[in-house]
Structures are given as C-alpha cells and as structure tokens.
Design a protein around this nucleic acid. Structure first.
Lengths: 206, 206
DNA sequence: TAGATTGTTAATCGATTAACAATC
DNA sequence: TAGATTGTTAATCGATTAACAATC
C-alpha cells in the first residue's frame, strides 16, 4: 500500500528527529516548516515534501505540533519498540557500543560474543563465547546483531549470526557483507568518514 | 583551477579505494570500469564519470592500471600524507578510536585528552589533561581533532580545539557543531545509522 | 474573516545512465 | 589492423525548489 520512500529522505529522518526532540525538550509546542528548515540548513519546501511523503503531520495555517511530530517520527523509525541487540566482538569497538548511552530507550544491548571472552567484564552486559551464539539466539529474541570484529573475521561472524536466525545486521567492520537478500545490513564505516574529511583537508591546501 | 567535485562522488571515493586496494592485494594489475562497477553495484558509466571528474586515469582500449589508480586515489584523498590526530575524550569511543588499526598508514593518534585522565592507560598513546591542550597544539603539529566526548561536552570541546588552532574536526558526538567557516567538520553519527536500520526493519514488518 | 502555513503540483536543477566517437 | 574500452556528450531519471491553491 505505502509507496517506497527514497533512501535520501530516510537518511534525513534521524536529523529531523534530533531537532524535534530538542525543540520538545525546551518546551516548544509548535513549529513551522520554515523554522525546522532554518535549524537544519534545508529549505522549507524540502521539509514539507519529506513529511508529506509519509503522509503529512501538519496543520495548514498553524504548522506542526512538536509532540505529535516527535511521536510520528518515532513510529516511522520504530523507536517506540524495544530492539534487542547482541554484539559480536568484545574489542574496543564492541565495548564502546556496549557502553554507549546515546541510542535511546528503544535499543538494548543484551549480550556480547567473542572467540575469547575469558576475563572480559563489561559490567551489566554478559560476555559469552561465540560457541554459545546459536543457543542464545534460539532462546532469546534477538533483533539486531552488531558486527564489531576485525575485518578478517567479519564475513564469518555475519554468517554465523544469520545462521542463528538474526535478520538485521549493523556492521562496523570495513568490509562489504555478502548475505541473503532477506537480511538487512546497515554499514557504518569509520575509515570512509575519515577519508572524506581527509579529502577536503587536502583540497583546501591544493 | 579545479572545478568542485560533487559530495556524492567524494563519498564514493573511499569505496573505490577499498575495491582497488583489494584488487591490488590479490595481484591484479588491470581492471575495467565494467569490472569495478560489478564489484560495487554501480554502472560502468558512473565509474568512468567519477574518475573522469578528477581527470581520467584509464587508457582507452585497455582499462585502468590498478597500481596507478590506487596511487591516484591515495593522492586525491591525501592518504599519502601523514595526519596527526588528537582525541578529545578518553571514554569508550575515544579509546576505541585510539586503538583502531583500520585507518591505514596515513593517520596517527598522537595524544588523547580528557578532563580526568588520571589512571587511564592507553599503552603507546599518551593521555593528558584538557588543560594541556593549548600548549600541546602549540608545540606539536595537529591536523585533526576527534571529538569523542559525551554530547553535552562536545560544543565546548570543539571550541577549545579550534581556539588551540586545529582546523579539522572529526565529530563522534551526536550534535551539530557550530564553528567558524574555515573549520572543516566531518560528522559520524552512530545513532543516525542505527535509526536508519531500525526504519527498514520496521518497514518490513509493516 | 484575514493571516498564516501547509499539502501538493509544476519547474528547475543535478545526478545517473546511455551512447558513441576517440584512441590505445 | 581489429578489438576493446575509455572519455565525454547527450538523454533520462530523480531530487530539490518554487509556487500557489487549499484550509486551518
């Protein structure tokens, strides 16, 4: 029924959400597309187009109700549902994600897996051996697996996770994962981001 | 002299580089735009357009020389120059970046700063108090400052870093930094990436 | 009601793809 | 030379912006 929304719009949703959450936190109750646009360096047109592609939450002559818009964005992105996450790899990055507080209420790190979990203590979060992965996933609802292994181990880790029945992967390893079409993969590449910065630094000088 | 290249092309450069580096590592010496396109899910046309926007490194009738292309990409992104980095914030994320091995030879973490550095040992990398930041930057060449503080401390940290003369910022804090126009900022937002994944998960079910 | 601001269509702009002449 | 494949122009497609009627 719903038409597919372009990926470029989807990538903007978290930024809208951040702005709206901020407005809500300072007690603002209404906001216009023009005001949102100013805060985000967009045009007001684009803001209205974007919201319209999901079915328009504003009121002509008034603007957008901040709380309603916030709730709608949460609903669109599924931030009103709990997502159980497991992390594969208890190295620096795995630990950083396990300890990160900024994801909000909708995401919970339930367990971390490593090939050598002995002696690693992450406080509240249990650290288990990779050999226990399948059993754990069978016994617990796992919505998202985070790949936080070294590059060389990522493909195999992803395969194990998929075999264990997890359908959504958040990949921090700098490699393209080749997985079945029904598995969702979202990549986050630190190197790519750094290289983009490096490009612009270099451009300035040249 | 050089015309500005669109940001969407710049974002693709690190991915080209990854593919070319891989081809080089397996000993391949030439590659066609068609082959690159296949590896990256692009069209051959786009590959040629992208390279052409920097000034075309191929040879008609032959293709692209892998080593030459790799060298050109390194040159474009500045990966053949050493970049000294400092990290602000010695929490989980700061430590993860300090310990990350995947950036390549062109980037070196020289120091980490924190408001409470006592007792934090990051091996080779020195951890210093924020009060030493200005002096350190005056005495050492610092190319990039990484903001790895909590969200609430990010704006101030960025300001201090800019005051100390650093012109390039890699920001891991989930907040927009408002800085002078001559400061380059590259944001990397974990939450935004996670929320995009969450959106698509949610879409499937609905 | 009058003013404001959305929702949405139409116009513009930019990015991607197709095509093919140039040339190795 | 003949075949292959680029470099680059032209055509298409999609995303952004402008405009304005609808309406709160």
């Amino acid at each position: 029924m719903e038409k597919t929304v372009s990926p470029v719009i989807i990538k903007r949703l978290p930024r809208y959400y951040r702005v709206i959450t901020h407005l809500d936190s300072i007690g603002q109750t209404k906001v216009s597309s023009t005001a949102i646009a100013q805060l985000m360096d967009f045009t007001a047109s684009q803001v209205r187009q974007d919201f319209c592609s999901f079915g328009a939450y504003g009121q002509q002559g008034y603007g957008y109700d901040v709380q309603k818009l916030k709730a709608e964005l949460e609903n669109i992105m599924g931030l009103n549902k709990m997502h159980n996450m497991i992390i594969i790899g208890a190295g620096n990055i795995g630990r950083a994600i396990a300890g990160y507080k900024g994801f909000g209420e909708a995401f919970k790190v339930c367990a971390v897996f490593d090939i050598a979990p002995e002696g690693i203590d992450l406080g509240e979060v249990k650290v288990m051996n990779m050999s226990q992965l399948a059993d754990y996933c069978a016994a617990n609802k796992v919505d998202i697996a985070v790949i936080a292994t070294p590059r060389t181990a990522a493909a195999q880790a992803a395969q194990q996770v998929v075999n264990a029945g997890v359908k959504n992967i958040w990949n921090f390893a700098p490699t393209e994962l080749d997985l079945p079409g029904d598995v969702l993969v979202e990549n986050i590449s630190m190197s790519e981001s750094l290289y983009v910065l490096s490009y612009y630094m270099n451009r300035q000088e040249g």
